[in-house]
Design a protein around this nucleic acid. Structure first.
Length: 646
RNA sequence: GCUCAUGUGGCUCAGGGGUAGAGCACACCCUUGGUAAGGGUGAGGUCGCGAGUUCAAUUCUCGCCAUGAGCUCCA
């Protein structure tokens, strides 16, 4: 056989007299590297291949080791196998199905009669540790499809048989560790002992092949890392996420409640409503700046509207209907059809475009009972919704302006980490190819022109047009889809919308649906978790709380209270005869932005002592100085309050 | 909607076939205290709703509702 050359990232090459496996190449470089090798990436491909894969001549090889982030995928995949082995050692009658790697770990679905318990999870994890200790080599073998089917049939592994039967390949790969094996595509680590830091997290039901009409399986979630430290950090983030759960914070801070009398219909308290309204006010200011006009449209429509828009056909399951005097009505699940009606009621000329109308109308969508979740998935909500009717030529400018607006809003809110996804035409779609070409070009050109990074989701657009989705990544690294911009060719058609062009003939406008915060409800939920409830001053329900030390300071505090109120701040005065420590604890847990402590000293020197949300204090600040700074902070919607403590 | 779990004063939870308990919060009293919980007293619950079993149900069984985890869905 001729020489087989393998190229390494530093452009050096290794020569073999046969097609070497990844591991062999690693060995030729060094024992240490070989020991840590868990897979490889070849020819600039992102996919990680198994370390047992033979490499063809001319392959560009990048070895992936245990300690690399890419290695995690392999470790977790092997961890899933160890989980399956542990379960079958403990309960041989339980069948295996599939166990993929997911974002922050892995899961494995089992065909078991009853669900697992927390105690069983502990037992399984212990057994997994044992399997890890055994340091069994993981070996790859290949069986013909028939052999594999026969093998798994004999074992009674019916799910596996079904999987193999559906595979369109002559041979399948089997990974063996000790006396246990599984059908698997790989990749896997070399020894079970390389999965050092693992943890089972939870168990839940799932369906075979994700189909609710098929068998109910028992899923176990877990995670694994290359070292204890990273696992610990991950578990800490999970803990932190629990602490920051907006449902918990909402109760603790008294912002909103849910009640069985209106499932999915949050009740906002006066404090929660402050946040809600401040966000709306802010968006309204931005609308003025970006030339949007706000409108108010009906809540309830004749069902005919939704027949015309097409929602009745496609979205009926999520709509609320009512019949009065033999006439069918629906509560609006979105603003767009109403906006089309509004557009139609005045004759439009090209001079009227772009016609940008914003609407904070309340929307109702009947979500299935199992999907509701705090504020992030509700049945009654409002969006920072707006529709832009424009010509195709105006699209790019409108898109750029939208992205600019979005960026300003997100920066103000301290949401700097976000990603843009551009979804292009799906297979099933409506509208002319020319329209799709122009809309996609407008989106892409806008992003490129602004120098924004984006990722393309090929074929993921709506049937009525391409779109941008904005994915915000929060402080705990969790992604949330908030903002969106969707081009729509369908609705202008459905409502026969026109404008008179400069050529004195009618033309059809394009409709852009867009939102920046998404739903206010959902946004507040996400933002509470992002900030752990420590809101910037302008959003804070209680911005200043005045705490007196003794009754002697009450008049001074009342005067302060009135002055702060007069400059438009949300201020409270706690003059109860409680100890200072008690009042501070309470105000601190309520995340009050500024605590003003007033005792004899402050009163005599006409100052206040300031305590921040973070517990830091600054003594004896002149009243005027505090007023000036806090007004400025309020005015600028600043995120930074560090001026108080140097 | 599906699977499993949960549902006890405003909140967090304990209890358990003989009509209920703690802490916090709340009210009143004492305390006037310098940066995360001072003390006392008191009020507050037909134990999610409905049915069944039982002499007796908040406790057991079933149904419903809601919540949670996950699945599925998400124009």
């Amino acid at each position: 056989m001729a020489d087989v050359k393998i190229y390494l990232p530093d452009n050096s090459e290794k020569v073999f007299d046969h097609e070497p496996t990844v591991l062999e190449v690693a060995q030729s470089i060094g024992d240490r590297l070989a020991k840590d090798t868990v897979g490889a990436q070849i020819n600039d491909n992102k996919e990680i291949i198994d370390l047992r894969t033979p490499l063809a001549h001319g392959t560009q090889l990048k070895i992936v080791t245990l300690s690399q982030p890419e290695g995690l995928e392999v470790i977790r995949h092997s961890a899933a196998h160890i989980l399956a082995q542990a379960v079958q050692e403990l309960w041989p009658e339980i069948q295996v199905t599939i166990g993929p790697v997911i974002a922050n770990g892995f899961f494995y679905d089992f065909g078991a009669k009853t669900s697992f318990t927390d105690e069983q999870l502990e037992l399984i994890e212990k057994r997994m540790q044992e399997i890890v200790k055994r340091a069994a080599p993981i070996e790859l073998s290949v069986l013909s499809k028939q052999e594999a089917i026969a093998t798994f049939k004999k074992l009674g592994e019916n799910y596996k048989v079904e999987i193999i039967e559906d595979l369109d390949v002559p041979e399948v790969s089997i990974y063996t560790q000790g006396d246990w094996f599984d059908l698997c595509r790989g990749p896997h680590v070399q020894l079970t002992s390389q999965v050092k830091s693992l943890k089972l997290l939870s168990h839940a039901g799932a369906y075979w092949r994700g189909d609710e009409n098929k068998d109910q399986l028992q899923r176990i979630y877990g995670t694994a890392f290359s070292n204890k430290k990273e696992l610990k950090e991950h578990l800490r983030l999970l803990e932190e996420a629990k602490k920051r759960d907006h449902r918990k914070l909402g109760k603790e801070l008294g912002l909103f409640y849910l009640n069985p009398l209106s499932p999915g219909g949050p009740f906002f308290t006066p404090k929660g409503t402050v946040i809600y309204n401040q966000l709306q006010n802010y968006m309204r200011e931005k609308y003025v700046e970006f030339d949007y006009q706000e409108v108010i449209t009906p809540q309830i429509y004749d069902v005919d509207l939704y027949h015309q828009s097409g929602h009745y056909g496609n979205y009926k399951e999520n709509m609320y209907f009512t019949k009065i005097d033999d006439r069918d009505f629906s509560v609006k699940p979105m603003n767009c059809p109403g906006h089309c009606v509004l557009y139609h009621m005045e004759h439009k000329s090209y001079r009227d475009l772009p016609y940008r109308i914003a609407d904070f109308g309340r929307l109702h969508r009947y979500e299935r009972s199992g999907v509701m979740h705090g504020l992030t998935r509700v049945r009654s909500f409002c969006q920072d919704d707006a529709h832009i009717f424009c010509t195709t030529d105006q699209m790019q400018t409108e898109i750029e302006s939208f992205m600019k607006l979005l960026n300003e809003v997100y920066s103000t809110l301290g949401m700097t980490d976000y990603h843009i996804y551009f979804s292009t035409r799906p297979k099933k779609r409506m509208g002319s190819e020319e329209n799709w070409d122009r809309a996609e070009a407008a989106l892409e050109n806008a992003l490129k022109h602004m120098g924004l990074d984006f990722e393309i989701n090929e074929g993921d657009g709506a049937f009525y047009g391409p779109k941008l989705d904005i994915m915000f990544v929060d402080a705990l690294k969790r992604p949330w889809q908030l903002g969106t911009l969707q081009c729509d060719f369908n609705m202008p058609d459905a409502f026969n919308l026109n404008y008179t062009g400069s050529d004195n003939t009618d033309h059809r406008p394009v409709m852009l649906h867009r939102a920046i915060l998404g739903s206010l409800e959902r946004f507040i939920g996400v933002y509470l978790e992002h900030t752990a409830g420590r809101l910037p001053l302008w959003l804070s329900p209680v911005q200043v709380k005045i705490l007196n030390l003794t009754d002697a300071q009450i008049p001074y505090c009342e005067e302060l209270y009135q002055q702060l109120k007069a400059i438009g701040l949300r201020v409270e005065l706690d003059q109860r005869s409680e100890k200072l420590g008690y009042k501070i604890r309470e105000a601190q847990t309520q995340r009050v932005s500024y605590l003003l402590v007033v005792g004899e000293k402050e009163m005599e020197s006409n100052t206040v002592s300031i305590r921040l949300k973070n517990g830091k204090t600054k003594l004896a600040v002149a009243r005027s100085e505090f007023f000036e700074k806090i007004e400025k902070e309020q005015e600028s919607r600043s995120l930074d309050e560090s001026w108080v403590v140097e």
